[in-house]
């Protein structure tokens, strides 16, 4: 078990390293010059060279990359002499745009994205699994068909469409909610939830549709297992049969996709955040991308990869908890 965990953590580090390297390389081959971007519009050649040296761009690529990597673990010093800036652990560099530490930018935005992701996840699990399991248990009835038609419809609506419709319907026409702005959970829980309700719904609808279809399938499969018949033959009440014997095995495959989805969303939902004006990581990423803010893009990419890889690891470990046949 310990050995397995170590191996997995090692693999995790490997994946992150590879992603960092690829992202680094992409920016290196891009035609835009980060030094020019950092230097500003009125930039003399001398000053440009200075900036270049300051950012370490005059060094070979591998040296830059090594510098970047060590910075994450030990912190590093940017520039020399009186301009030297100590970038503390965990150092992901500074934004070219506003010279703020990338790490601080990320941590600043993370609560917003996390609120959005977790809230939406709760909502889509309730909606999606509820619909999926209901449909599975009433397989081939009108309820089943109605739910599945609804799921296909919801899945085929792009999130920007549902978002806009929600804003238009709930805020503009009905005036039920204010236009969303982010409130901190700890400071104003009600405001937090009220403001996030619409983004949650918009995001959750899409995922709920996919989860309904997935969970219907796996639940039907689970309920057809011979051990379900055994449980019934023992005279277990149908509710126990479904909840204890069916649900646990039926939901196991859902865990895998849920880990991936949640991991992916934690690093930002670009479209939803943009439409609802939420200052999350997704918007940070988009802004950094259009302005070639390499350190920020690199930071967000690494964070996203980190979340996905960790979510995967957590899912695999949870499998061992759920299924006694899985042993590491």
């Amino acid at each position: 078990m310990i050995l397995y965990l170590l191996r997995r953590l090692l693999a995790l580090a490997g994946v992150l390293l590879a992603i960092a390297a690829v992202t680094f390389l992409i920016f290196y081959v891009l035609p835009t010059d980060p030094a020019a971007a950092a230097c500003g519009k009125t930039c003399s050649p001398e000053r440009l060279a200075d900036v270049r040296a300051y950012l370490g761009l005059d060094k070979p690529l591998w040296e830059q990359f090594a510098h970047f990597l060590t910075g994450i673990f030990t912190g590093r010093t940017l520039g020399t002499g009186q301009y030297a800036v100590q970038c503390d652990f965990p150092c992901l560099g500074y934004s070219y745009e506003n010279s703020l530490p990338v790490w601080d930018l990320l941590m600043d935005r993370l609560p917003v994205s996390a609120s959005l992701a977790f809230g939406a996840a709760v909502l889509w699990l309730i909606l999606g699994l509820g619909a999926g399991v209901t449909a599975a248990l009433r397989k081939d009835t009108a309820t089943d068909k109605a739910l599945m038609v609804g799921a296909v419809a919801a899945a085929s609506l792009p999130v920007y469409f549902t978002s806009v419709m929600l804003i238009y319907g709930v805020i503009r026409i009905a005036g039920l909610l204010p236009y969303p702005s982010y409130h901190e959970l700890t400071a104003d829980p009600l405001g937090w939830a009220g403001n996030l309700l619409l983004p949650w719904t918009a995001l959750a609808l899409l995922y709920a549709a996919m989860y309904a279809r997935q969970s219907r399938g796996s639940m039907i499969e689970a309920m057809a297992e011979p051990y379900i018949r055994t449980a019934r033959a023992k005279g277990m009440p149908e509710r126990t049969v479904v909840v204890k014997h069916g649900l646990r095995s039926g939901m196991t495959p859902i865990l895998t996709i849920f880990g991936m989805d949640l991991g992916g969303l934690l690093a930002g939902a670009v479209i939803t955040e943009s439409i609802f004006g939420l200052p999350g990581i997704g918007r940070l990423f988009y802004g950094a991308l259009v302005s070639s803010d390499q350190p920020v893009v690199l930071g967000v990419t690494l964070l996203a990869a980190f979340f996905i890889v960790v979510a995967n690891l957590v899912v695999d470990l949870l499998y061992a908890v759920i299924d006694p046949r899985v042993r590491y």
Partner: peptide
């Protein structure tokens, strides 16, 4: 359900798939 398992019981062909893998 009150009769099943109590007054009449059944065993099946494949004991592996007829037992739930997740419970002791």
């Amino acid at each position: 359900a009150k009769v099943r398992g109590r007054k009449m019981a059944m065993i099946f062909q494949d004991p592996l798939s007829s037992l739930h893998p997740y419970y002791t």
